[in-house]
């Protein structure tokens, strides 16, 4: 990173050669190729994923795959705020909890249909996202990190103590399965295969939503904020509006994942939404490369899939995660799939 920057400076007024692109590394090139997959390739890939439950017989393996999908949705949501807009959020689990508890309470207490609780959870997530986004917009990255950390903790404390609503640490159990269809034709979603299709559709929705918004005027404004917010403002980007929008969009996706979690587990308790949960979610886009959609997907496979494979060492999982975060930032801050970036240095 340093070298290329120096080369550019020494280039003076001459245009520097474009070979930076060749140095981008195999993984980034691979990601680019994956993204440019032809239509047929994409359909083939989709078919493979749709037939996955037929090929995999083991319930355990399906469970792991479902979890990977769940974390893809979570991490993609966080990627909007961190990767696109460049705002550090260490409280994403709060939005996740919002979705999970909304679905759990509405289904259990009020007998609402799962399909209505999903938009309800997402709406509540958006409200919370705006509530945390709006007042903290002026804050610089490390402050924002601290505040979002505190916010995540507040949501956890509330979930733990508001006995009347959340039943506190005992959690809410026996959340019913969602149904597809009406009346006599209702099919319960209660097998691993059915849950897989449910979360897979959520993943597809998330990917499409992220790609569409990223490529839109809004996405462009977000990346402009990430690069230089003062200049973005001069260029006409309403910082308050767009940062809040980014938080809200991210929160909606987090809540979506939460709704699924509630029905999949049939149980929610505050322990699923601790700070560690937020940290795990954060590492996913970091491994993959902040801002990169294929990177986030692979990041989820690595972060959620690998610890399951090395189950024996699961006690050491968070230790490894911590060490990994440090090493990654020192040696490959752009992530496995990220483009090599020019980054503004922080001046101490």
């Amino acid at each position: 990173m340093n070298k290329t920057r120096l080369d550019d400076l020494s280039g003076g007024s001459q245009a520097t050669s474009g070979d930076n692109f060749l140095q981008q590394g195999v993984m980034a090139a691979l990601a680019g190729r994956l993204a440019r997959f032809s239509g047929i390739g994409k359909i083939a890939l989709l078919c493979v994923f749709l037939m996955l439950p037929l090929m995999i017989q083991s319930n355990y393996a399906m469970r792991v795959i479902i979890y990977i999908c769940l974390y893809i949705v979570l991490a993609m949501g966080l990627n909007v705020v961190m990767g696109f807009t460049g705002l550090l959020n260490i409280g994403h689990a709060a939005f996740y909890a919002t979705g999970a508890y909304t679905t759990a309470i509405l289904m259990k207490q009020f007998g609402m249909s799962f399909w209505l609780t999903v938009p309800a959870g997402m709406t509540l997530g958006v409200v919370l996202g705006v509530a945390i986004g709006l007042p903290t917009l002026r804050l610089r990255d490390d402050y924002l990190a601290m505040v979002t950390l505190g916010f995540g903790q507040i949501v956890y404390i509330v979930a733990n103590n508001w006995m009347g609503l959340t039943r506190g640490p005992r959690g809410i159990a026996d959340i019913p399965s969602p149904f597809l269809g009406w009346g006599d034709w209702a099919i319960p979603i209660d097998s691993y295969t059915a849950f897989y299709y449910l979360i897979f559709s959520f993943v597809l929705f998330t990917i499409f939503a992220c790609i569409r918004v990223r490529d839109s005027r809004v996405g462009l404004a977000w990346t402009a904020i990430r690069e230089d917010e003062d200049v973005a403002a001069v260029m006409g980007v309403n910082l308050v509006l767009y940062k809040t929008m980014s938080f809200a969009f991210s929160a909606a996706l987090g809540a979506l994942a939460g709704s699924f979690f509630a029905v999949f587990q049939h149980f929610v308790s505050p322990n699923s939404f601790t700070i560690l949960e937020s940290v795990i979610i954060i590492t996913i886009p970091i491994i993959g490369g902040l801002g990169s959609i294929p990177g986030t997907i692979v990041g989820a496979v690595i972060m959620i899939g690998l610890p399951e494979i090395f189950r024996a060492a699961s006690e050491y999982r968070m230790v490894v995660v911590g060490a990994f975060m440090v090493l990654m930032m020192i040696f490959k801050p752009e992530g496995l799939f990220g483009k090599k970036q020019f980054q503004q240095m922080y001046k101490a």
Binding site: N2, G86, L88, I90, R140, D141, D142, A145, L276, V279, I282, I286, Y316, M318, V319, V321, G322, A323, F324, M325, V326, M328, M329, I330, P333, Q343, Q344, M345, Y346, A348
Partner: peptide
């Protein structure tokens, strides 16, 4: 120290990593 010339973002994440590491250790 290894990140003294890195973006602030990277430093925040790296220190957060240390914190997670120590707590779980």
């Amino acid at each position: 120290r290894p990140l003294r010339n890195a973006p602030r973002f990277a430093v925040v994440i790296s220190v957060l990593g240390v914190s997670i590491f120590l707590q779980n250790m």
